[in-house]
Design a protein around this nucleic acid. Structure first.
Length: 278
DNA sequence: ATAAACGCCTGACGGC
DNA sequence: TGCCGTCAGGCGTTTA
């Protein structure tokens, strides 16, 4: 489910309390349960359990769509992929019932538990001495102020790719997924099939500023809540194009179109986002 | 270099 | 009611 704003929201909730429970910072893991072994990418499930038990949560951070939970020895890294979710809740005993699709549970000393729920089993958890090995090839963080529109322009010029799949390529720029990409392209007035090399410098500047605008708004609204799992976010109420197929564009009234780009449903306004370079 | 196709999974929804 | 196709916030691998 999550893109950058949703992962950021979960990170903030785990740090400050929320998502049903108290902050996990400083908490000690008494016990780790793995309910579906495929969730653990590395190390082996038995080593994962052994090496997480008795560790204390030191800090929380996010890189791209990865959530990093720093332990004294090594770091837990979560990727939620399409359907993952994390919740924190109080427990009385280890036998307290869990929910359908709960895959990993960390039981803390303060009688709270962190639960990784993942219906589609795409999500993964790592325990790594240094998570940089996962992060080093990722593209820049779009909200990092040191990432300039000049740099963005030069990167776009290096490729001849459809702009939408390029923006969703985590090795090009990190954190954008299907929803926020469609929203940013709409606000920038850029057609999702435009060739990356065709974007002008002014268009690039607007595009970066719109990427930042949708991501910031998403974080401020605590992410987007869609599908069956209520996530508490409110950004879905501000979607301009995503999920609005055949509805009227708020800018010009034209019917929003849905096409498939890079195997992903893609929403845009044919009037506000012209394809003028093919 | 680019992009398409496919695999990984479960569940919701609409049409018949 | 069941069955079937389609769709879903992601990404790695394989194939053209």
């Amino acid at each position: 489910m999550p893109e950058l704003p949703e992962v950021e929201t979960i990170k903030n909730a785990l740090a400050n309390g929320g998502r049903g429970g108290a902050s996990i910072l400083g908490q000690r893991i008494l016990r780790t349960d793995v309910l579906w072994d495929g969730t653990i990418q590395t190390p082996s499930v038995s080593e994962f359990i052994r090496q997480t038990e008795n560790q204390v949560i030191q800090s929380l951070s996010r890189r791209a769509k990865y959530l990093q939970v720093q332990l004294a020895a090594g770091a837990l890294v979560f990727h939620l992929r399409m359907s993952g979710d994390i919740r924190v809740e109080p427990y009385k005993e280890y036998t307290d019932p869990l929910q359908k699709h709960d895959r990993v549970v960390f039981w803390f000393a303060n009688h709270q538990r962190l639960v990784f729920n993942n219906p589609r089993k795409f999500g993964r958890v790592w325990l790594l001495p240094d998570p940089q090995v996962l992060f080093k090839k990722l593209g820049p963080e779009p909200l990092d102020p040191s990432f300039t529109s000049q740099e963005f322009y030069e990167k776009l010029q290096k490729h001849q790719r459809q702009i939408k799949p390029l923006l969703m390529d985590q090795y090009f720029i990190a954190g954008l997924g299907n929803i926020y990409t469609d929203e940013a392209l709409f606000l920038a007035g850029v057609h999702p099939l435009r060739n990356s090399k065709s974007l002008t410098q002014p268009e690039t500047e607007v595009l970066l500023s719109m990427i930042r605008k949708v991501l910031t708004a998403g974080i401020e609204r605590n992410g987007s809540s869609i599908d069956w799992a209520y996530r508490g976010g409110e950004f879905q109420n501000e979607f301009q194009v995503y999920g609005r197929k055949e509805e009227a564009c708020y800018q010009c009234g034209t019917a929003i179109r849905r096409i498939v780009v890079g195997q992903r449903g893609t929403h845009y306004c044919p009037q506000c986002q012209k394809l003028d370079d093919l």
